[in-house]
């Protein structure tokens, strides 16, 4: 539901990162890292991105999304594991609170410019 705002922030960062000395830059790919726990709907993000990049150097660019797994560690027994689905109960001690190590990312790793 907030994908438009996220797309807008993403576009601002990407545009800022294009070196000033390139004439008529055209971005081909945007590499993103999105955690599986992040509240982002990919299709909706792509849709918003398309709309707001018309006529900019990002027009037509592809969003390449690396989906980051949810990794956690138990505070009681220090067991670490990858969480699939919504259950965070520690499989080792069944008793600990957990710390999230990854899975909440919402990052731009790089942009790829066309070479023409």
């Amino acid at each position: 539901m907030h994908e438009m705002g996220i797309a807008q922030q993403m576009v601002n960062i990407a545009l800022e990162s294009i070196p000033r000395d390139i004439v008529n830059p055209r971005v081909e790919n945007l590499n993103l890292r999105i955690g599986k726990l992040a509240a982002v709907v990919e299709d909706s993000l792509k849709f918003c991105f398309e709309i707001i990049t018309k006529g900019t150097p990002l027009d037509g660019a592809t969003l390449l999304i690396e989906s980051v797994p949810v990794k956690v560690r138990c505070r009681a027994c220090f067991h670490g594991w990858e969480v699939e689905g919504p259950v965070f109960t520690c499989p080792a001690c069944k008793d600990g609170a957990v710390d999230i190590l990854s899975g909440r990312e919402l990052e731009i790793s790089s942009i790829e410019l066309a070479d023409d």
Binding site: I6, Q9, M10, I13, A14, S17, I18, P19, L32, L106, E107, I108, S109, S110, I111, E112, L113, D115
Partner: peptide
């Protein structure tokens, strides 16, 4: 040409 960025999308917030 690839330009490395490594920034959080919600960094302003």
């Amino acid at each position: 040409m690839e330009i490395n960025i490594q920034r959080k999308v919600l960094e302003a917030n």
